[in-house]
């Protein structure tokens, strides 16, 4: 119970920081508040038994913070205009409906939950699926002791190849966008 309360507080902190990140008028404060959200997420990962994710989240957060801070400080200040009132109203309405549906989907009105209750993943149910098999047999089947790595790089390596392709393509796109002068322009000059 104590752990759940701590996680709840950290998520509330994340929500507050993300609202600040979205609503503040200074772009640098916005980017730094986004960093606070990411670091809180890595603490939650650590508490929820996911040290792999905590390590990755911390270093990714540092690098993306450097990227965004360089963008914001390099260019001159632009005063953000207030957001459109109609769009804000529509978003709030849609958000309210979404949260209400989520409340009933998680069994908030008693019974009929379509998502397993908090603290009891599919792994612990009567029909545990593949996760239980991965946990019980990783050692003799792959020889690795980190079950997450065994799933990423052995059981579901196809998936990882696809995701490596996504990273490759996004980096390639960034190179293409950042190429200094187009070939045509260079030939003319």
């Amino acid at each position: 119970m104590g752990m759940e309360l701590f996680i709840l507080m950290l998520i509330a902190f994340m929500l507050a920081a993300s609202l600040i990140a979205i609503e503040t008028r200074d772009l640098l404060s916005s980017v730094i508040a986004m960093g606070a959200v990411g670091f809180a997420l890595s603490v939650i990962d650590l508490l929820a038994g996911a040290p792999d994710l905590a390590i990755t989240q911390v270093v990714v957060e540092v690098v993306s913070l450097i990227l965004l801070v360089r963008v914001v400080t390099a260019r001159e200040e632009t005063q953000p205009v207030p957001s459109d009132a109609l769009r804000t109203a529509v978003t709030l309405l849609a958000g309210g409906i979404f949260l209400a549906v989520a409340f009933f989907a998680f069994g908030g009105a008693g019974g009929g939950a379509t998502v397993p209750p908090f603290g009891q993943p599919v792994l612990t149910s009567a029909n545990p699926g593949v996760s239980a098999d991965y946990l019980a047999r990783t050692a003799e089947q792959t020889g690795a002791s980190n079950v997450v790595m065994a799933i990423v790089l052995d059981y579901r390596a196809y998936d990882t190849l696809g995701e490596a392709t996504v990273i490759f393509v996004s980096i390639l796109g960034a190179y293409a966008i950042l190429r200094r002068v187009g070939r045509r322009k260079e030939a003319r000059a």
């Binding site: 905590a54 390590i55 990755t56 270093v59 690098v63 997450v148 790595m149």
Partner: peptide, 18 residues
């Protein structure tokens, strides 16, 4: 040591890039 302890190629790659 990604297959023995927390970490792995993704985290290590970002650390090396940093």
């Amino acid at each position: 040591t990604g297959h023995l302890s927390p970490g792995g190629g993704f985290a290590g790659g970002v650390i090396l890039a940093s």
